[in-house]
């Protein structure tokens, strides 16, 4: 099952199912739920590259999502630039700011990336909320132009659905190529053991910054879609809480797994959105429920739900590792301090 989901055939089947959904006429509301989910699937993908493949905990993706949304909205509102230009500008803007922000940290202590990104998210909100002349503060930017390119304009929910489906599918495809290539392998090597990654020739800082730039690029692009789809951006869409949800998407779906990234968006966005009217408490308690799931998951299956790595339940693995240690076949596990020290010995 997991293998099928991760195979090319699995992706094709999934894509076909998604492509026929609007033909079944599910109604505007359901299409809207899927549209929003698809946008967040890009955010989730970006977070997954940074956290799942490269092993860095970033907690500010909502800020890059917002940076993309504001960049795109402002460029099209102020300069009347076409959507395509705004879309890529949003991604590039988020990516450059992300790279610059992460650089000081990745050179010294990667742990602190999570702190820097939290602080950046808080600052982003404050700036968006207070820079009245640019962002109109809490009132937000209304009347963001529609998505239009090459003579095509997206009017209905179905139009948006197909635009998003194509963009998200292309993004997932491109990322699958990168993660399947040397770059993705370099990221995984860094995640598993930085010292060894260096020893086989990986320029660790460069690849970490690259992972962060690519992850932020995706968040920025998603932000652009969000702005032109809802046709409104306002600061409270990009609070730190949203970043925590993005993080939960990536982890609960499955780290270092593309179907996992999509599943994460489904779990954290589609389900609560779909039940918004009948079970409103779900939205309120979403972070808490997600948090409890995180703790359970970290203990039971530390790489996420769908990741290919842990096909056996964690408890069984732990048992076998314990047995192997017991009969002296396996070395004792190392603490982080010890890991670092081994390097110095």
């Amino acid at each position: 099952m997991l293998d099928f989901l991760h195979s090319r055939r699995g992706a094709a089947v999934f894509l076909v199912i998604l492509a026929v959904i609007p033909l079944l006429d599910p109604g505007r509301y359901w299409l809207h739920v899927i549209n929003v989910t698809m946008i967040y699937a890009l955010v989730s993908l970006g977070q997954n590259i940074i956290t799942g493949w490269c092993g860095m905990l970033t907690l500010g993706q909502a800020a890059f999502f917002g940076l993309g949304a504001y960049t795109s909205a402002l460029l099209s509102l102020t300069f009347g630039l076409p959507f395509i230009v705004c879309f890529f500008a949003a991604g590039i803007m988020a990516s450059i700011v992300g790279a610059l922000l992460s650089l000081p940290c990745l050179r010294v202590r990667t742990d602190f990336l999570s702190l820097i990104t939290i602080a950046f998210n808080q600052l982003f909100f404050v700036v968006a909320n207070n820079w009245m002349s640019l962002t109109r503060g809490p009132m937000g930017l209304p009347q963001v132009p529609r998505i239009e390119f090459f003579g095509f304009a997206a009017w209905s929910a179905t139009d948006h659905y197909y635009v998003f489906l194509v963009i998200v599918a292309l993004a997932y495809f491109a990322v699958s190529r990168i993660t399947g290539g040397a770059t993705g392998r370099a990221w995984e090597m860094i995640r598993d053991d930085e010292v060894a990654a260096r020893a086989v020739g990986v320029d660790v800082v460069r690849y970490k910054v690259l992972a962060f730039a690519v992850g932020c690029f995706l968040a920025g692009c998603a932000g652009s879609l969000f702005a032109h789809y809802l046709r409104l951006v306002s600061p409270d869409m990009f609070l730190l809480e949203e970043s925590l949800i993005a993080m939960q998407m990536a982890i609960l779906g499955g780290l270092a797994s593309l179907p996992g990234a999509a599943l994460g968006a489904f779990l954290m966005i589609a389900i609560p959105e779909a039940l918004r009217s009948s079970e409103p408490w779900l939205i309120t308690l979403r972070p808490g429920i997600g948090g409890a799931l995180l703790v359970i998951l970290m203990i039971w299956r530390p790489h996420g739900l769908l990741s290919r790595r842990n096909t056996a339940p964690q408890s069984l693995r732990a048992l076998s590792a314990w047995l192997r240690r017991g009969i002296g076949l396996d070395r004792a596990p190392r603490s982080p301090a010890e890991r670092d020290r081994d390097n110095l010995r």
């Binding site: 392998r185 995984e188 090597m189 995640r191 598993d192 053991d193 010292v195 060894a196 990654a197 020893a199 270092a256 790489h303 790595r309 070395r331 190392r334 081994d342 010995r345």
Partner: peptide, 11 residues
């Protein structure tokens, strides 16, 4: 190589 093995355990 390393005295205390350093393999990429997730790969």
């Amino acid at each position: 190589t390393f005295q205390n093995l350093r393999l990429f355990e997730g790969m």
